[in-house]
């Protein structure tokens, strides 16, 4: 199955084509503005690999957790492509992609996989020797992470470690791109789902508080 994998993280975006047993072809763009550039990047990576859009079998898309704009860009792109090309998609979490990247960096498993989830929080999930999740994703803080070193589950962190996070022993740190998103999708097996069902994975509800104060005219108080 020919697979087009992509992600739009905080520091840029990347796309990779998986065509049979060939090593995946990767293109990436650094820097902000990933929303503007993702579609031309997909075009470029397919052209480089000589794969036509309508010869694809599925998409693999990183749905988060991550920067809200970036994960929406990736999911919106997947939904638009799925709608027109009739392609299903594998939703891949940032944690599963990070686990794949750790394996590629010769990291042993099982491990506890962690990614910075913004605003002083860290998303963590245990992954087993076969790279499948051993438990649910949870959200913790740098303090919570430092307080529970587990020699049986060494930590792997997606790059972009919070600067104030000093862990002992220091965790393995890996860069994550679309190749890991694609590998995680293929490793998990299963069937890709219709893109209508794709949703970004948010760790926090929308930042909104109910309207402050009461109206000046409060009929209920009369």
């Amino acid at each position: 199955m020919r697979l087009l994998a992509f992600e739009a993280g905080a520091g840029g975006c990347s796309a990779a084509v998986f065509d049979g047993d060939r090593p995946p072809c990767l293109r990436r763009l650094e820097g902000p503005g990933q929303g503007d550039a993702l579609i031309p990047l997909l075009d470029a990576v397919l052209a480089e690999e000589g794969v036509a859009k309508n010869a694809l079998g599925a998409l693999a898309v990183c749905v988060g957790p991550g920067g809200f704009t970036g994960i929406r860009v990736a999911v919106a792109a997947a939904k638009g492509l799925g709608l027109v090309l009739g392609l299903p998609a594998f939703p891949v979490t940032t944690l599963a992609a990070t686990a794949c990247a750790a394996r590629g960096a010769a990291g042993s498993f099982p491990r506890l996989v962690a990614v910075d989830a913004g605003r002083g929080t860290i998303a963590v999930q245990p992954f087993g020797a076969d790279l499948s999740p051993d438990g649910p994703m949870t959200v913790t803080t740098p303090g919570g992470l430092a307080g529970r070193p587990d020699p049986l589950r060494p930590l792997v962190f997606r790059d972009g470690l919070p600067p104030d996070l000093a862990l002992h022993p220091p965790p393995l740190v890996v860069a994550v791109d679309a190749r890991h998103v694609g590998r995680a999708a293929l490793a998990a097996g299963g069937t890709p789902a219709p893109t209508f069902d794709l949703k970004p994975l948010y760790l926090r509800p929308a930042d909104a508080r109910p309207s402050a104060g009461r109206p000046l005219v409060d009929r209920g108080a009369l």
């Binding site: 929303g35 993702l38 579609i39 859009k53 809200f68 939904k79 638009g80 492509l81 709608l83």
Partner: peptide
């Protein structure tokens, strides 16, 4: 901007795919 990015990205994907 969050909504504009979502709509414009979807539009780009549809335009490119079609």
């Amino acid at each position: 901007i969050g909504g504009v990015v979502a709509g414009l990205t979807t539009a780009k994907a549809v335009a490119w795919a079609a």
